[in-house]
């Protein structure tokens, strides 16, 4: 039930409460009022119609690189 999916913000509504996101090619309206600030192009985690977090893409890359680096250690 806590299933949530990452989707890309493609448009922010004029009310500031809603945004249009791209999820696997579908364009869906989601609420954004649980987030402090969100920008077009960012990825957000969507759960039951609300964005609940901004995905930290830098950390996403960094974390996998850390594991890859760990593999390269002797």
């Amino acid at each position: 039930m806590c299933l949530s999916v990452p989707a890309k913000i493609i448009e922010i509504g004029s009310s500031g409460w809603q945004a249009k996101v791209d999820y696997l090619g579908s364009h869906i309206d989601v609420g954004i009022s649980l987030l402090d600030r969100v920008e077009v192009g960012q990825y957000v985690l969507v759960h039951v119609g609300e964005a609940i977090q901004v995905v930290d893409e830098e950390l996403a890359k960094e974390s996998i690189e850390i594991w890859k680096g760990w593999l390269d250690e002797a």
């Binding site: 890309k8 990825y43 995905v55 996403a60 890359k61 594991w67």
Partner: peptide
Amino acid sequence: GVARRSMMGMAYRDKDIFASL
């Protein structure tokens, strides 16, 4: 968007990295 999302998600599904881990 689809392509970029896949890339981000795919890194954590990478078969070779998984096997090495």
